[in-house]
Write a protein that binds this DNA or RNA. Sequence first.
DNA 1: ATACTTGCAAATCGTTTGCAATACC
DNA 2: GGTATTGCAAACGATTTGCAAGTAT
Lengths: 149, 149
Amino acid sequence: MNPRLYNKAMNANRPYSGLIERLKLKAIRPTRQRLALGKLLFERDGEACNRHVTAEQLHSEAAASGVRVSLATVYNTLHQFTAAGLLREVVVEPGQSMFDTNVDEHHHFYFESSGVLEDIPGHGVELARLPEPPAGSRVKRVDVIIRLA
Amino acid sequence: MNPRLYNKAMNANRPYSGLIERLKLKAIRPTRQRLALGKLLFERDGEACNRHVTAEQLHSEAAASGVRVSLATVYNTLHQFTAAGLLREVVVEPGQSMFDTNVDEHHHFYFESSGVLEDIPGHGVELARLPEPPAGSRVKRVDVIIRLA
DNA sequence: ATACTTGCAAATCGTTTGCAATACC
DNA sequence: GGTATTGCAAACGATTTGCAAGTAT
């Protein structure tokens, strides 16, 4: 397909609203696969969508929505998005990573029985005191995970 | 070896101090491998030892100290000890679990560059507010991980 | 035109499992 | 003696990699 026409069409019915621009800003080429995955990640259920997916889940979703993407590409894309600050990787279980579309500072509930990860709404967690980071190190991130049974 | 003599010898130079009894209390048979691993885990550097090891690390240590234990047994043992409340499993990285000999409530520093996990001393972390657990669930554990770069 | 991306299949890594041989009580 | 435990090697699931073919700028 002529790429110029392709992009025009994309903007016409705005199925990727700001996605193309967002990716370009991060020097990530807006390929068909990346746009499809980005759409699934960032543009589901309107604006306030914060999702927590595994690579396998996203791969299934893509397949379900008729997009053919290889699992390897899903992994590549998730990591690229994470490196670009569009996603955040959260580790709660040994053996698989979850990717969170909410990159603001926040914490999580983890339902051990179902494997579901969920943002803790608002300022539900307040850290009153944090220790000094050991000499020579700086705090990169503080993760609070409330494990539920 | 005659088990009676074996146990007597064990107590004579106390290489397993209370370990045998601790295991028996949890209905875990004090086999040679479990005692060796338990010793490496709980009785290094005197009393105040809190260690954070992966299965592979413990397996290497065992080998280094001349004990022949299969990796499968190391995994079995770590999980049995964890189920018995002698260890706690901590997940900080996708792809491998760490086991913490400190089972009291406490939190962690994680040095991303080296992969080292370390207890935060004293009451370095204070959680001033925690959210209500969602209906139908109860808090099993709260993990705070301070990731350092 | 060129460099970046993709898909596939194979490789890798941590972990688990099946089962015969062995150790504990 | 009878059951639990061990070791080995094979199986496993998630993730990564190498490389030829396809795509974006």
